[in-house]
Write a protein that binds this DNA or RNA. Structure first.
Lengths: 275, 275
DNA sequence: CGCTATCGATACCGGCCGGGTATCGCTGCC
DNA sequence: GGCAGCGATACCCGGCCGGTATCGATAGCG
């Protein structure tokens, strides 16, 4: 199986449309059809069921889509890491607006290390996991269970409980504490995008970033359950009510397995000194 | 970067010899040289330094070797998993001669689950990690820190301390307890192979499997530090002495990230009920 | 019920690239 | 200095990748 075949298959599996996938890949549709057919023949499994009106994934196709995305990410990461090995630098990915205090402490402490290299910050709008998987970052700050750490090496740094963030005028704003049951069915519960940028269908408000979220909450249009850190510097007009049975959020430092970088190892060691 | 290029590069990087690598790949040497040169040019980095007498890895080459092996493993795994998705079965890898008691309990408990599928056992001579990485197995029982769990999802099942296994006639056999310092410098300390099947240079006896090891120990030719379980059913003529400061060994159940298999999830859930 | 638009499959062709053989140039060794 | 080993280079051939043109199936529509 060549990465070319995987790229083609992933494109078709994501678009579920040979024409659009071919466009996206910058090739014509016939060679794409042919390549997918060859791939299926060599694997001995149907990956897609096609009618002349609709394309859908088989079970085998769904498996290959997940695995294929991971492989293509790993290939991109390998290229980037190989290319940049002799210009030592460290890219740290973190969610924008996340725990900036921890981040500052970490960067300061690492900079004081002997042999520390320059650290570039990659602040992500959404999940900080993607740049780690495709090699744009060498190390990331993630938040379990929000971010999946599958396929990464991690060390836990810090665990905290969660709070419901509400407008002061919200009916639940006066409560001393809440339970998940009180909030999960609220129609104004904020919904974050999936890693691929799409939103799962269902009720709730689609939000793209923290600023927007807090505005929506202020306006009484949204409600969110978030880790404790956001309480510091909460906007006027918002309250944080503890949700006693919400899952704990663990801040972790994560890096790709097989990392050979001394800088990453140093940074992780420094970070672990905090916990 | 195509997997063909990666296969070629990994072969050369492992052989450090274009001719032998070409043999291994079943192609002639010139196209191999050319492909590697193209790869280097596209990456913009030298991967190998060659004289007409000797080939060696650059730093970038070392990075690509590690990453490339992982990628090729992932590709093999993806192929196998895609191919076998409609014939539901579960392959569990474990080190032969390992904790067979735990294994038996696990298999029994899982078989009693509703919706349990047949479990095939893959007993490995060496590390049970490789078959997981290349897709021959769906789940594995590993032992940290002996087995690396980089790039895998794991759950810890059991932790135990380690014992020195000695012939009763060994000078240290009478000790009530030992420290690592007492054993690490023994010239007869057993050495296990690395994941690639080779042995690191150095003093000590090269052993291939448990049976051979215990024979060597009986004969007073070897000494080993091993987890507690091996004490049960120890051969006549051998003693186990606790090594108080040896690292604890943790038995874990491991599976590939992105596993979509319900059977794997069930098995892991059952296993976690034990700990 | 037939016309049409859409979409994937098929047919066919040309150019590039991957693989082969022959040979060169360098280097360590007797 | 001759020789053997090894990687690089030169050159050729065939297959595969990508292109255009077209077909066949199907859903929508009047």
């Amino acid at each position: 199986m060549e990465t070319r075949e995987l790229r083609y298959f992933v494109a078709v599996a994501e678009e579920l449309h040979f024409g659009r996938a071919a466009d996206r890949l910058g090739i014509a549709q016939p060679p794409l059809s042919r390549t997918i057919a060859q791939l299926e023949q060599r694997l001995g499994v149907a990956l897609l069921t096609r009618t002349s009106r609709k394309v859908s994934l088989t079970e085998a196709g769904a498996v290959l889509l997940t695995e294929g995305r991971a492989i293509l990410g790993a290939v991109a990461a390998a290229e980037r890491r190989t290319r940049t090995v002799d210009r030592p630098s460290l890219v740290l990915a973190a969610k924008a607006g996340g725990s900036s205090e921890l981040l500052a402490k970490l960067l300061d402490a690492y900079a004081a290390e002997p042999g520390a290299v320059a650290v570039d910050l990659l602040l992500c709008e959404a999940h900080a996991r993607q740049p780690l998987l495709d090699g744009r970052a060498d190390v990331a700050i993630l938040h379990e269970p929000y971010d999946s750490t599958a396929g990464l090496d991690v060390e836990a740094l810090h665990t905290e409980s969660q709070f419901a963030i509400l407008s002061t005028s919200h009916p639940l704003a006066g409560a001393a504490q809440l339970r998940m049951a009180d909030v999960v069915d609220l129609p104004e519960l904020a919904r974050w995008p999936e890693p691929d940028g799409t939103y799962l269908p269902g009720p709730g408000v689609e939000v793209h970033n923290g600023t927007q979220l807090f505005q929506m909450i202020s306006l009484g249009r949204a409600v969110a359950v978030m880790p404790e850190v956001v309480r510091t510097g909460l906007l006027e007009g918002l309250v944080a009510v503890p949700v006693v049975d919400a899952p704990k959020v663990t801040t972790v430092i994560a890096w790709p397995p097989h990392s050979r970088s001394r800088a990453v190892a140093d940074l992780v060691r420094v970070a672990m000194g905090f916990s």
